[in-house]
């Protein structure tokens, strides 16, 4: 559908980017030298931060960072703007909470259950939504997510307005108790790092190269014999699944799963996080999530002004700051981050 334009990273980063095989071969595991350095900084931060900052805050940050990375997989590398990612995030949280509380599953199984639920919703939703691109794709994903929201309002297992409360953290593999925030933190950090590296691996695999070719020129990818629908659907399901992992982890961290996480404003928030950090950058969504979560934390008592500030950041990013924080830094240093 050439009439439906998709958001290309060329437009997002302001520079045409072509990664030939030579660029791929450099560095370790598809990371360039600059990216390896950034990765090192990130890992050191993850290891040191809980000794200086409140672990629960950090865990929240990491859950949203994973959520934003999952969202960025679609917008940054396939060029599809999903405005309904809250559905997978929230549903993952609900199912994991239900599994841990009612079925008594251990945390790792509860998270897998949440991820599976998100994948199960993502499959039919993605299958429907990839029939259109661009603006229509955004509207369809938003509408489908709203359907999930109404389902969650009515379904008995979600607890309606109360949500699922007092979800036990349990013991990892039945042996490592997660009651202390520190032990939970290491689990969350591990999950985030695994998800982050998985996404990076996906992007730099041959499959990821096909995704990028679809983003740049879908008709051409089709003419080369790629079944682009299948590739897009798989990317959608992967993204939804990882969003589900993030939501499931969040519900275990806080012991609560509520309607907030399936609401459309959550879908807007994850768009904002990726936009602030930089669409189509590897480290951007994480930085964006950190900025937004920190802001919400400090401005929590300001009520509806938080919405106004978020809206203003949206406007600012779109008008003058389209590369996002990491995109701008990368542009200054002339590296891809």
């Amino acid at each position: 559908m050439p009439a439906d334009t998709t958001m290309t990273a060329g437009a997002a980063t302001g520079a045409p980017e072509f990664q030939g095989p030579a660029a791929e071969a450099e560095g370790f595991w598809g990371f360039s030298r600059a990216q390896l350095a950034a990765l090192g900084v990130m890992i050191v931060f993850l290891a040191v931060a809980p000794f200086f900052l409140y672990p629960v805050f950090l865990m929240k940050l990491l859950c949203f960072a994973l959520f934003a990375c999952a969202f960025n997989l679609l917008i940054g590398y396939v060029g599809l703007l999903s405005f309904g990612h809250a559905a997978y995030f929230g549903m993952g949280g609900y199912v994991a909470g239900h599994a841990a509380k009612v079925w008594g599953l251990s945390p790792e199984l509860a998270i897998i259950a949440g991820a599976a639920a998100a994948a199960l919703i993502g499959l039919p939703f993605g299958w429907l939504a990839i029939r259109r691109a661009g603006i229509y794709f955004a509207m369809i994903t938003l509408a489908l997510a709203q359907m999930v929201y109404f389902f969650c309002v009515q379904a008995p297992f979600t607890g309606g307005e109360d949500g699922i409360q007092a979800i036990p953290r349990g013991s990892l593999f039945g042996v490592v108790p997660l009651n202390s925030d520190m032990s939970m933190y290491w689990l969350v950090a591990g999950i985030f790092l695994a998800g982050f590296l998985l996404i990076h691996r996906i992007i730099h695999s041959p499959y990821g190269q096909v995704l990028k070719s679809i983003r740049e020129n879908e008709p051409r990818a089709i003419s080369l014999g790629y079944r682009t629908e299948d590739y897009k659907l798989m990317a959608f399901v992967l993204s939804a699944t990882l969003a589900g992992v993030a939501g499931a982890t969040k519900s275990l961290v806080f012991g609560i799963a509520t309607l907030t996480d399936v609401h459309w404003s959550m879908s807007g928030e994850v768009v904002l996080m990726s936009l602030v950090g930089g669409l189509g950058t590897i480290f951007g969504p994480m930085v964006g999530a950190a900025v937004i979560v920190t802001m919400q934390n400090y401005l929590a008592e300001m009520g509806a002004w938080v919405t106004v500030i978020q809206g203003a950041i949206f406007v600012l990013c779109v008008m003058v700051f389209r590369r996002g924080l990491i995109g701008e830094i990368g542009n200054l240093l002339k590296v891809k981050l």
């Binding site: 919405t307 809206g311 203003a312 406007v315």
Partner: peptide, 28 residues
Amino acid sequence: AQLYKLDHLYGLLLTFGVGLIIEGIFRN
């Protein structure tokens, strides 16, 4: 008007942000 040269999705993001601002101010 500043966004017509760009991808149409930026228009969506901008108007979404403006909507948030207006709604937030009225809620306050």
